[in-house]
C-alpha cells in the first residue's frame, strides 16, 4: 500500500505524499525532539526534512526504502540544525539548576536533569547516534545505513558517544560538587 503511495508521490501526487507522511509525522517529531531537545525546532526540522523528501522523492529508486531514507534526511537536517545552534550558543554557559538537594523522591528528576545537561554537551552527531540506538533501537548496521558510514565506524562512534555521555555526566557532577563546596 505504502509502496503505491510512494510511487504516486514520486510522480507529483501531493495528496499521496501527505497520506504517506501523516502517520509518520509523530514518530519523526519524536526523533527530532530527542536530538534537538526543543519542540519548535524539532517541528521545523521535520518540516524541512519533509520538504526535502518531497523535492528529492523522484530520485528514490526503491519505494520500500522510503522510511529509512526519510529518517536519513531527518537526522541530517537535525545534525545541521544542532551544529548551527551549537555555534551560535558557543559562548553560552550552562547555568546550574538551583534548588533543594535531591532527596529520594526527586532523584528521578535530578537524573533526568543531569542526562539533559550531559546530552546537550554532546556533539550533534553523537546525539543522533544515541537517539537512533536508545530511542529507535537501531544497532550499528542500521545506524550506519542512516548516517551513510561503514558499520564498523558506526560501532566505534556509538562507543565514543556513550563515553562522551559518561564524561559529560561526570563533568556535570564535578560542577555540582564544586558549587556545593563553595556555598
Amino acid at each position: 500500500m505504502d509502496s503505491n503511495l510512494v510511487g504516486e508521490a514520486r510522480h507529483g501526487d501531493q495528496e499521496a505524499f501527505i497520506a504517506l507522511i501523516r502517520p509518520r509525522s509523530n514518530r519523526l517529531l519524536a526523533i527530532a525532539h530527542r536530538i534537538l531537545r526543543d519542540f519548535d525546532r524539532a517541528e521545523d526540522a521535520v518540516q524541512d526534512a519533509l520538504e526535502i523528501a518531497w523535492r528529492d522523492l523522484p530520485g528514490l529508486r526503491d519505494p520500500d526504502r522510503f522510511d529509512a531514507w526519510l529518517r536519513k534526511l531527518l537526522v541530517r537536517v537535525c545534525i545541521g540544525q544542532a551544529t548551527r545552534e551549537r555555534r551560535r550558543s558557543a559562548n553560552l554557559r550552562l547555568l546550574p539548576i538551583n534548588g533543594p538537594a535531591a532527596p529520594d523522591d526527586l532523584a528521578g528528576i535530578a537524573d533526568r536533569d543531569q542526562l539533559e545537561r550531559g546530552f546537550r554537551r554532546l556533539a550533534p552527531d553523537q546525539r543522533a547516534i544515541l537517539v537512533l540506538h536508545h530511542f529507535e533501537g537501531y544497532g550499528p548496521a542500521e545506524i550506519a545505513d542512516v548516517l551513510g558510514i561503514p558499520a564498523g565506524t558506526a560501532r566505534s562512534r556509538l562507543h565514543f558517544a556513550h563515553r562522551a555521555m559518561r564524561a559529560a555526566l561526570e563533568a556535570d557532577a564535578r560542577v555540582a560538587v564544586a558549587q556545593g563546596l563553595s556555598t
Partner: peptide, 10 residues
Amino acid sequence: WMADGPATVS
C-alpha cells in the same frame, strides 16, 4: 530518559 517526550505534532 528517551522514552519521555512529546508524542504528537502540533
